[in-house]
Design a protein around this nucleic acid. Structure first.
Length: 741
DNA sequence: ACCCACCCTCTTTAGACAGCATGTC
DNA sequence: CTAAAGAGGGTGGGT
C-alpha cells in the first residue's frame, strides 16, 4: 500500500467538490513524491525545490499547487525548457485545469495563442526564454502571478541557456510580492544550494512508480546493480542482442547513440530483428505512416526512415523534421514500432518511455576540446530515467554497454552508483551576461544605477556561491561595451537605455548581433542579397553549419566569383578563415532556400537534414527581421526594407515575386510557384480568376481553390506594407471592385 | 588485364531558445 | 589532453 488515498490528504486544502473532481480526473491516490511535497508545504505557499526521478509524479505536484492558487483567485506561470515540452504540458493542463473551469494557454516562440491577451488565462505555459521575453515586454499580467513553476530547473547549469533561466528567476525573486516558487528538478548534487538561493525548501525523492534496474552489459551478460545477472543470447552485436532479448518478451527498446550517423546505422541493423516483431495489426498503420512521411519530404534521410518504419524501427535525431519526429514518437507510444534509436534529443525532451533503455556509448566527442569525453552523470540519469512505462511495465531496465570486463566496474562506479554533478551558475558567460544586463536595465526601472545592478547581481545564483566579487568587473566591462555601442546611456551615475537598446532587448537578439549589423549599415549604403545573408550567418545568434573537407573547393570557387557581394575581407588567419567559410556556406544554403531550390536538393548539397533547414531558416528569419527593425530605427531605410523583404522570403522560402501569393493561407512555396507559372501572379489575378480555371492546375483541388477564393472574399485585413505597393494596389482593387460596396 | 579482399588513411562527430503575425504539401 | 566508425583509396594476390 504505497499509495495514499488523495482525499485523506487533500481535504485540508480543497473543498469536497474539488476533491471529487480530482478523483474523476484520476487523482485518487497520491505518490510518495506528492505526499512529501505537500508535507513540506507546497500547498501552504512554501517555496519548494523538488528533486525527483522522471515520471515520479512531479507534474501533479505542480498541478495541485496550481489548483490551490487558482481556487484562491491566483494565476500560474509554468516554465519549461523546450517548446515540445511546453506543448505537451499545455495539452495535459488544458484538460486537467479545464475540468475545474480554468483556462490554460501556451505561449512559445513558434506558437502563440490566438488571443494575445495572456492575462485572461489562469495558467500560462511558456518556455523560459519566452517568459523572459514577456517580462522584457513588461507583460501587464506578470505582477499578478501568484505561483511560478520552473520545470527542469536543473537547466540552470546548462552552458548556453542556463544563465537566461538564472536571470529570469533572479528577477522574479526581486520583484515585489514575490510569487510562490516551485522548482522541479532531476536529481542533482547541490539541491540545497539551489533551494537556498530560491528561499525554498529542498525536497528530495528517490522513489519511482516503476522500479528502475540499472545494469551493464558485457559478454552475453547483463550485470545488474542489485547483484543479479541476466544471460542473453548473443547475436554477435551487443545492441542487437539486447534488442532481441527485449522484443522477444514483447517489450520496447529505446537505444541511445552518440551521433546521428550511428543512430541511423544502428537502426538499420536493428531492422532485421524488429521486422519479425511487427504485429499484424500494425502493418497497415506503419504503411500509412511511411507513405505520409515520403509525401511530406523527398530527401534521402526521410526515405530511409520511412523504409525502416515498415520494419518496426526508427531513428530519431534533430536532422529529422518536426513532423517526422512526431510520427516516430506516436508510433512508438502506440507500440507499432518496437525500437527507436535516438541521439540525446530524446533524453530530456518529450516523454517517451520504454521498457528497456540501452546506452551504447557513454562518451561523446567534444567539438571544442577536440577529444572524446564522458557524458555527465546527470545526462546518463536522464536517459536511464526513460526506462519503464508506468502502468505497462513492472520494471524498467537501463543498460550501459561495456567493451571490456574492466569497463563493467568502471561504469558502475562512474554512472550507476554515482551522484549527479553539482549545478554551476553559467552567468560568467559573457554574451549572456551582456544581453541580460541590457535587458535588466532596459526593462526594469528599479535597476538604473551601478548600485542597484550590484544588488541585482548579488541576488543571483552565481553570487550565492562566489559573491559579486568576480562578476562585478565583468558586468562593468560589458556595461561599458553597451554604453559605447549606444545601447545604454550613463549620466551622473544613472543608467538609462536608449531607444535602440530597449528595442534590442525586446527583439531578444544579442547586442553584438545588432552592433554587427549597424557597423555594416554604416559602411555600406546597400548590400546584395548574399551580403545580407552573410551578415545574418555571421551574427552570434545564428547557428552555422560546419564546413566539410569536400566543401572547400566550391566555397572557394564562390568566393572567387562572388566575393564582391560579401561585405567582409577574407581573413588571413586559418581559424578565422574556416569560420568565414562556414558563414558563407550557411549564407549559400539560405540563398538556395529563398531561390526555391527544393528541400531535398538542399539536404543533399549541404549534407543537412530537413530539421536542420527548418531551424536554420527559422533563426535566419528572426535575425533578419530584427536587423531590419534596427536599421529602421537608425534611419537606414534601404537596409531596413531589403532586410524586411529578405526575412519574409526566408520565412516562406520563395523569390520576391511570390511574396504576395504566399501570404495566402494554404499557399506555400510550391503552390505559389505553380500559380505563378499558370499566370496567377498576384492577389488580383486570383481574385478575378475563374474557379474552374484554377482547378485545372495540377494539385489544386476543389477544397484548396475554395479556401483561396474564400480568403479573397472576406475583407482582407491590412497586410504588410513592406510587401510593396503592388500588394496594396491589388488589395484596393480587390476590395473596391469585388467585395466592397 | 581485371577482380576482389584487405588494409591504411582520411574524415567526421548532440541539441535547439527567441520577434512578429498568422498558417505547409 | 582520453575515440571510433564509415568512406575512400591503395595494395597485393589470384585468375
Amino acid at each position: 500500500m504505497e499509495y495514499t488515498p488523495a482525499r485523506q490528504v487533500l481535504s485540508k486544502y480543497f473543498s469536497q467538490e474539488i476533491i471529487s473532481k480530482l478523483e474523476e480526473e484520476g487523482v485518487k491516490s497520491l505518490y510518495p513524491t506528492q505526499l512529501l511535497a505537500i508535507k513540506n508545504g507546497v500547498l501552504d505557499g512554501e517555496n519548494i525545490v523538488l528533486s525527483a526521478p522522471t515520471a515520479s509524479g512531479k507534474t501533479l505536484v505542480a498541478g495541485l499547487a496550481a489548483l490551490k492558487h487558482l481556487e484562491e483567485g491566483g494565476k500560474v506561470l509554468y516554465l519549461v525548457p523546450l517548446r515540445a515540452l511546453a506543448s505537451e504540458k499545455y495539452k495535459e493542463f488544458k484538460k486537467f485545469f479545464g475540468a475545474f473551469g480554468y483556462k490554460t494557454v501556451l505561449s512559445t516562440g513558434d506558437y502563440d495563442s490566438a488571443d494575445p491577451a495572456l492575462g485572461k488565462y489562469d495558467v500560462i505555459v511558456t518556455t523560459n526564454e519566452k517568459a523572459d521575453s514577456l517580462m522584457r515586454h513588461s507583460a501587464p499580467w506578470f505582477p499578478s502571478l501568484t505561483l511560478i513553476v520552473a520545470d527542469e530547473i536543473h537547466l540552470l547549469g546548462t552552458e548556453k541557456r542556463g544563465a537566461t533561466l538564472e536571470v529570469l528567476l533572479t528577477r522574479i525573486l526581486m520583484s515585489e510580492d514575490t510569487p510562490q516558487l516551485l522548482g522541479l528538478s532531476a536529481t542533482i548534487g547541490n539541491l540545497e544550494d539551489v533551494a537556498r538561493w530560491l528561499h525554498a525548501k529542498p525536497v528530495k525523492v528517490d522513489w519511482r512508480p516503476v522500479v528502475l534496474r540499472e545494469g551493464v552489459y558485457y559478454d552475453e551478460n547483463i550485470f545488474f546493480a542489485d547483484g543479479s545477472t541476466r544471460r542473453i543470447d548473443s547475436l554477435g552485436n551487443s545492441v542487437l542482442s539486447l534488442t532481441y532479448d527485449t522484443l522477444r518478451e514483447s517489450g520496447q527498446v529505446l537505444i541511445f547513440s552518440p551521433t546521428r550517423r550511428a543512430a541511423v546505422a544502428e537502426a538499420k541493423k536493428v531492422a532485421n530483428i524488429s521486422r519479425k516483431f511487427v504485429a499484424e495489426g500494425s502493418k497497415r498503420v506503419l504503411q500509412e505512416a511511411s507513405r505520409k512521411l515520403v509525401s511530406l519530404h523527398a530527401d534521402k534521410l526521410t526515405h530511409e526512415l520511412a523504409e525502416l518504419l515498415l520494419r518496426g524501427v526508427a531513428f530519431h535525431h534533430a536532422g529529422l523534421s518536426g513532423d517526422a519526429r512526431e510520427i516516430v514518437e506516436d508510433l512508438f507510444r502506440a507500440g507499432h514500432i518496437k525500437a527507436v534509436v535516438a541521439t540525446p534529443t530524446l533524453a530530456a525532451g518529450v516523454n517517451l518511455p520504454a521498457r528497456r533503455v540501452v546506452i551504447t556509448d557513454y562518451r561523446r566527442y567534444n567539438v571544442e576540446l577536440g577529444y572524446q569525453e564522458s557524458i555527465p552523470v546527470m545526462e546518463y540519469k536522464q536517459m536511464a530515467g526513460r526506462a519503464g512505462r508506468p502502468k505497462f511495465d513492472k520494471e524498467g531496465e537501463a543498460i550501459l554497454i561495456a567493451r571490456s570486463f574492466e569497463e563493467v566496474e568502471y561504469l558502475f562506479k562512474k554512472y550507476i552508483y554515482a551522484e549527479p554533478e553539482n549545478l554551476q551558475s553559467q552567468l560568467g558567460s559573457e554574451p549572456v551576461l551582456r544581453s541580460q544586463l541590457l535587458a535588466v536595465i532596459s526593462t526594469d526601472e528599479k535597476i538604473r544605477s551601478m548600485d542597484m545592478l550590484e544588488k541585482f547581481l548579488g541576488r543571483t545564483f552565481f553570487a550565492q556561491r562566489y559573491g559579486t566579487f568576480g562578476i562585478l568587473p565583468l558586468a562593468r566591462k560589458n556595461l561599458e561595451k553597451l554604453i559605447a555601442g549606444g545601447l545604454i546611456e550613463e549620466k551622473n551615475g544613472v543608467l538609462n537605455p536608449t531607444f535602440l537598446g530597449k528595442r534590442i532587448a525586446e527583439l531578444y537578439i544579442d547586442p553584438d548581433t545588432a552592433l554587427e549589423g549597424i557597423r555594416l549599415f554604416k559602411e555600406h549604403e546597400s548590400l546584395e542579397v548574399l551580403g545580407y545573408l552573410f551578415l545574418v550567418s555571421k551574427t552570434p545568434d545564428m547557428t552555422t553549419i560546419g564546413v566539410r573537407r569536400g566543401d572547400y573547393e566550391y566555397l572557394e570557387e564562390v568566393l572567387e566569383d562572388r566575393g564582391r557581394e560579401i561585405p567582409y575581407q577574407v581573413p588571413q588567419d586559418e581559424i578565422e578563415y574556416e569560420f568565414f567559410l562556414s558563414y558563407l556556406k550557411t549564407a549559400l544554403l539560405l540563398e538556395d532556400w529563398i531561390n526555391e531550390v527544393p528541400e531535398d536538393s538542399i539536404v543533399e548539397k549541404y549534407d543537412v537534414g530537413p530539421g536542420d533547414i527548418y531551424s536554420l531558416t527559422q533563426t535566419a528569419e528572426w535575425i533578419s527581421f530584427s536587423l531590419s527593425q534596427i536599421a529602421e530605427i537608425l534611419g537606414f531605410h534601404e537596409h531596413s526594407v531589403k532586410l524586411s523583404i529578405l526575412s519574409k522570403r526566408i520565412a516562406h522560402g520563395v523569390k520576391e515575386e511570390l511574396l504576395e501569393l504566399v501570404a495566402l493561407k494554404g499557399i506555400g512555396r510550391v503552390r505559389a510557384r505553380k500559380l505563378y507559372e499558370h499566370g496567377y501572379r498576384s492577389i488580383y489575378d486570383l481574385a478575378v480568376a475563374d474557379e474552374k480555371e484554377l482547378l485545372r492546375i495540377p494539385g489544386f483541388g476543389p477544397a484548396l481553390v475554395k479556401a483561396i477564393k474564400q480568403q479573397l472574399k472576406s475583407p482582407v485585413e491590412s497586410q504588410e506594407e513592406v510587401e510593396g505597393e503592388r500588394l496594396e494596389e491589388a488589395e484596393q482593387i480587390n476590395l473596391e471592385e469585388y467585395f466592397g460596396v
